Measured scan of single mutants.
Amino acid sequence: NLYFQGLKYMVPGARVTRGLDWKWRDQDGSPQGEGTVTGELHNGWIDVTWDAGGSNSYRMGAEGKFDLKLAP
Rank of each mutant, 00 (worst) to 15 (best):
T49A: 10
Q32P: 15
V11K: 12
W50F: 02
I46S: 00
Q32C: 15
W24R: 04
M10C: 09
P72I: 13
P31L: 08
A52M: 11
V37D: 01
Q32M: 13
R59P: 00
G64V: 04
F4N: 12
G54R: 07
V16N: 00
A14K: 06
A52R: 10
Y58I: 02
S57V: 11
L68R: 00
W24P: 06
Q27E: 13
E63T: 05
T36M: 08
T38W: 05
H42D: 10
V11R: 10
Q27R: 05
D26L: 07
W22V: 04
G33M: 08
G64A: 07
T49E: 12
L41I: 12
T38D: 07
N56F: 14
K69D: 10
Y9M: 10
E34Y: 14
G39F: 05
T49N: 09
D47C: 15
D28E: 06
T36D: 02
D51Y: 02
P72Q: 13
F66A: 03
I46A: 03
W22I: 04
G64K: 06
A71D: 05
M10E: 04
K23M: 12
Q5T: 12
Q5A: 13
R25T: 12
D47K: 15
K23F: 06
E40P: 13
N1G: 11
L2R: 14
E40T: 13
S30T: 14
P12R: 11
W22G: 03
N1Y: 09
D67E: 09
V11L: 09
D28W: 05
Q32R: 12
A52T: 11
Y3M: 14
N1L: 12
D26G: 07
K23P: 08
G19C: 09
A14T: 11
S57M: 12
T17V: 15
R18H: 04
R59H: 02
Q32A: 14
P12N: 09
K69S: 12
T38I: 12
R15P: 01
A62Q: 04
D21T: 04
D26V: 06
N56S: 10
V16C: 03
V37R: 01
P31S: 08
E34W: 14
D26K: 06
V37P: 00
L7A: 09
F4A: 13
A71F: 07
T49Q: 12
V48R: 00
I46V: 11
G13I: 03
L70S: 05
G53A: 04
G19S: 06
K23G: 07
D28M: 04
M60K: 00
E40M: 12
K69Q: 13
R18Q: 06
R59F: 02
E34G: 10
S30L: 13
G44A: 02
R18M: 08
A52G: 09
E63P: 00
G54Q: 11
E34V: 14
N43L: 10
W50R: 00
Y9R: 09
K23Q: 12
A62K: 04
G39A: 09
I46L: 11
G53E: 02
E63N: 11
T49S: 10
Y58K: 01
Q27S: 07
Y58G: 01
A62C: 08
V11I: 13
M60W: 08
E63D: 11
R15E: 00
G13N: 05
D21S: 06
R18E: 01
L70V: 09
G19A: 07
A62R: 04
I46N: 00
R15H: 03
V48M: 00
R18S: 03
L20H: 13
E63K: 09
G19K: 06
F4R: 10
D21R: 05
N56C: 14
F66Y: 11
W50G: 00
M10K: 04
Q27A: 08
N1C: 15
G61N: 02
G53D: 02
E40L: 13
L70Y: 09
E34S: 13
S57R: 15
W50A: 00
D51T: 02
L68K: 00
W24M: 05
G35C: 02
A71R: 08
D47R: 15
G29A: 05
A52W: 13
D51N: 03
L2K: 14
K65W: 04
P31W: 07
W50Q: 00
A62L: 04
D26R: 06
R25C: 15
F66I: 05
K23R: 09
V37G: 00
A71N: 07
P31M: 08
P31H: 08
L2P: 15
T17Y: 06
Y9K: 09
A52H: 14
D67P: 01
T36C: 10
W45P: 00
Y58C: 05
L20S: 11
G64D: 09
S55A: 10
T17M: 14
T49H: 10
D21H: 11
W22E: 04
W50P: 00
S57W: 10
E34F: 14
Q27N: 06
D67M: 03
G44F: 04
G64E: 06
S55L: 09
L7Y: 09
N43C: 15
D21L: 03
L2N: 15
A52N: 11
N56D: 08
K8C: 15
G19H: 05
R25P: 08
G33I: 04
Y58E: 01
R59S: 03
T17W: 06
N1R: 08
D26W: 06
Q5L: 11
L70H: 07
L68H: 01
M60G: 01
A14P: 01
A14C: 14
L68T: 00
V11E: 08
G64T: 04
K65G: 05
T49G: 05
R25I: 10
I46F: 01
R59W: 02
G33N: 06
Q32H: 13
A52C: 14
A71S: 12
S55M: 13
L7E: 08
Q5S: 12
M60E: 01
G33R: 08
E34L: 15
K69W: 12
G6L: 15
T49P: 00
V48T: 01
G19Q: 05
Y9P: 06
L2C: 15
A14Q: 09
G6S: 14
N43K: 10
S57H: 10
K23N: 09
T49W: 07
M10G: 03
Q5C: 15
V37L: 07
E34Q: 13
T36H: 04
M60H: 05
F66V: 06
M10L: 13
A71Q: 09
V16I: 05
Q5G: 10
N43S: 09
H42K: 13
W24H: 06
D28H: 04
G6C: 15
P31G: 08
G54T: 10
G6I: 15
P72V: 13
V11T: 11
N1E: 14
G44P: 01
L7P: 07
E40W: 14
K65I: 04
Y58F: 03
S55G: 08
E34A: 13
K8T: 09
H42A: 10
V37E: 00
F4V: 11
W45Y: 07
R18D: 00
V16L: 00
S55K: 11
G33P: 05
G35L: 02
G35M: 03
K69H: 09
G54I: 11
D67R: 01
L41N: 06
Q5F: 12
P31N: 09
W50I: 00
W45Q: 01
T17K: 11
D51C: 04
G54C: 14
A71L: 12
L7N: 08
Y3W: 14
V48A: 01
G19P: 03
A14H: 04
S57I: 10
T49Y: 08
A71V: 14
L68M: 00
S30Y: 12
Q27F: 06
S30C: 15
K8Q: 13
I46H: 02
K8G: 10
L68Y: 00
V16P: 02
W22Y: 06
G44T: 00
W45E: 00
D28K: 04
D67W: 02
